[in-house]
Design a protein around this nucleic acid. Structure first.
Length: 577
RNA sequence: GCGCCUGUAGCUCAGUGGACAGAGCAUCGGCCUCCGGAGCCGAGUGUCGGAGGUUCGAAUCCUCUCAGGCGCACCA
């Protein structure tokens, strides 16, 4: 029923299919036809690409070259057979054989207008795909230990994890965002003791901090809160010592306080989680023990030197790993084993972990776990986040690349703003080092890509406001009466913008499949890079009603896609700046 | 020593089998009686770290090699 089935093309763009899929189908049908007619006999999947050079068409396929070896004839011969079938499609303007045997396809302009109409009809829903088919997928990210505030590295992980989750959701997956809290073990005891010492310090008692204690300023604040709540009640406590049960009090207080800070940081950063999963719960529910039993039943455990080992080397790891130490306590890996087994039991078909790159040594043992449990290791995807190097006006901050370890997410967020912060984190591939220049991120100037993209949206909103003030009707969708006006968008720049808009779905699909949200960031910069020059050379609101309508529709589509794309990144699309 | 990641224009980086390798910034020179100048126009730049190999075709795949980062716990 969409306006896209306008008589001009006789073409119906079906929902739930990307344009690329549509073109691929045209080629497949041409191949089927050739086979049915006896001209060809080999069937192969169609690989489509968008050529960089426009003289090579809107789409191009190497199908003929792939078929050549088995067909026993030249790629160009095969291509010329296929070209006939492809050219017969009502959306194809022309189709030709080029170079060694490429088939270059040029689509009719009317087809592009129908795509534009389709984009407008879908509105904010444009970009939503069903690639994932509703499959349950879990993205676990940040999962910072509750021993201190989030630093800049966690921020990058948060931005990437959240954007991945957004993109996966758009691509049709059933996404659960999860944060794993390491709230058990020795580090928690250290945290509790650290609080106790700060508490005693506030009470004027002489204290000495061991090197491995948490000594940040934030601990002093927590100690003040503790003092407010408990007064001098624990003044002479001996946490952790026999006969004294105060340690859990300190631990709980510190942990809760830090976690609420982390939650606030994340909320202000625009990141929300569906599940906060506690490591302690794994133990309380007996899941760690249950997992050990299962592994034992699978004959992958053994005892040595008083410890219980997991023979991960049978599944590709460098060395076997300890699950239960000689002193009877379990390792972090034991918890993680139980946790990931639980993820599988909870029905997630695919599991995504976002880790700091310094944890890459853990990948083989986690993969080993999946294999030992008889699961396809491909169900686990680990995204590694490389370090962030902070600089200010080109000057590196602190002395090492580890500056990011000491600067909190909140500090950066407050200095440069949430939008710039998130956008910058998503300008690079996750596994590439990131140079984050605070001055640049703050700068409200053209060299700052965040504003360049946001400005595109604000500018269009402003144009529409201008039109309304002039009494011009600003349409959101193409109606039967306005469809014909789209042909007024006949400039090269206008068609180029429509073509770029049409590629949005492919970008989302690729971002989701590869879990590389930075592709969206690049896409948006390109889109803004097409729109601004166009705007500068052409007036949208003119005395010509038909032309004005057509251009307003084009603007609407650009604004919608920019807003949608920024939304996926967790960046706002302002109406005014 | 072993493993993982990275090496592409002056800088920061896209680009993972296609046709003469792209963008932003920086540099230089232009554009405001005009819907937002946070914008636009024009100009130059490459041994894709190196060497072999696979392929009709390689920045992309394989092998070796050089450089940088990170990891190699009965820590979390």
């Amino acid at each position: 029923m969409g306006v896209s089935q306008g008589q001009e093309t006789g073409y119906v763009q079906e929902d739930n299919r990307t344009m690329k899929g549509t073109i691929r189908e045209i080629i497949t049908k041409a191949l089927d036809g050739a086979i049915a007619g006896g001209a060809l006999k080999t069937r192969k999947p169609v690989i489509l690409e968008r050529p960089k050079r426009e003289e090579f068409g809107d789409f191009s396929t190497n199908l003929a070259m792939l078929l050549a070896p088995e067909e026993g004839r030249s790629p160009r011969d095969i291509a010329s057979i296929l070209v006939e079938g492809i050219a017969a499609s009502p959306v194809v303007a022309r189709c030709e054989v080029a170079g060694p045997g490429f088939i270059n396809i040029f689509l009719k302009r009317s087809y592009w207008y129908s795509i534009l109409a389709e984009i407008l009809r879908k509105g904010e829903g444009y970009g939503d795909l069903d690639t994932g088919g509703g499959e349950k997928i879990q993205v676990e990210f940040v999962s910072a230990n509750p021993t201190g505030p989030l630093h800049i590295g966690h921020g990058r992980g948060a931005a990437v994890g959240d954007a991945c989750a957004n993109v996966l959701k758009a691509a049709g997956f059933d996404v659960t965002r999860e944060y794993y809290i390491n709230d058990v073990g020795r580090q928690m005891e250290t945290l509790g003791r650290s609080l106790f010492l700060r508490y005693q310090e506030l009470l004027g008692m002489p204290v000495e901090f061991p090197d491995d204690y948490y000594r940040g300023e934030y601990m002093k604040e927590i100690a003040r809160d503790f003092l407010t709540k408990y007064g001098t009640r624990y003044r002479d406590a001996r946490p952790g010592e026999p006969g004294d049960d105060s340690l859990p009090v300190f631990i709980e207080f510190a942990k809760d306080s830090i976690m609420s800070g982390i939650k606030k940081d994340l909320a202000d950063f625009g990141v929300g989680f569906d599940v906060w999963y506690s490591e302690k719960d794994l133990f309380d529910k007996g899941l760690v023990e249950e997992t050990l039993k299962e592994l034992e039943g699978r004959n992958v455990l053994y005892e040595k030197d008083g410890a219980l080992w997991f023979r991960t080397t049978d599944y590709g790891d460098d060395k076997d790993r300890v699950l239960v130490k000689a002193d009877g306590s379990t390792t972090y890996f034991a918890s993680d084993t139980a946790y990931h087994r639980e993820k599988l039991k909870r029905g997630f078909k695919r599991i995504v972990d976002v880790w700091g790159a310094d944890h890459h040594g853990y990948q083989p043992r986690m993969k080993a776990l999946f294999k030992a449990l008889g699961e396809d290791e491909e169900r686990l995807k680990i995204i590694f986040i490389q370090l962030v190097s902070l600089s200010r006006g080109g000057v590196p901050l602190k002395m090492s690349t580890r500056a990011g370890e000491f600067i909190t997410l909140r500090e950066v967020m407050e200095e440069v703003g949430k939008d710039a912060c998130r956008f910058f984190f998503l300008m690079r591939r996750p596994d590439a080092h990131l140079d984050f220049d605070l001055e640049l991120a703050k700068k409200q100037a053209p060299e700052n890509p965040v504003y360049y993209v946001q400005y595109c949206h604000a500018r269009i909103m402003s144009i529409m406001e201008f039109a309304r003030e002039r009494g011009v009707d600003v349409p959101d969708v193409v109606g039967p009466d306005t469809l014909k006006e789209l042909s007024r968008l006949d400039q090269k720049e206008e068609v180029a913008i429509i073509k770029h808009l049409a590629g949005f779905e492919e970008v989302i699909e690729k971002s989701a499949v590869e879990m590389e949200p930075h592709r969206v960031t690049f896409y948006l910069q390109e889109l803004a890079g097409l729109f601004h020059p166009y705007y500068n050379r052409n007036r949208v609101v003119t005395d010509d009603p038909g032309l004005t309508t057509a251009r307003l529709l084009l603007c609407r589509a650009v604004a919608t896609v920019v807003a949608k794309g920024l939304g996926l990144l967790g960046v706002s699309a302002p109406k005014k700046m």
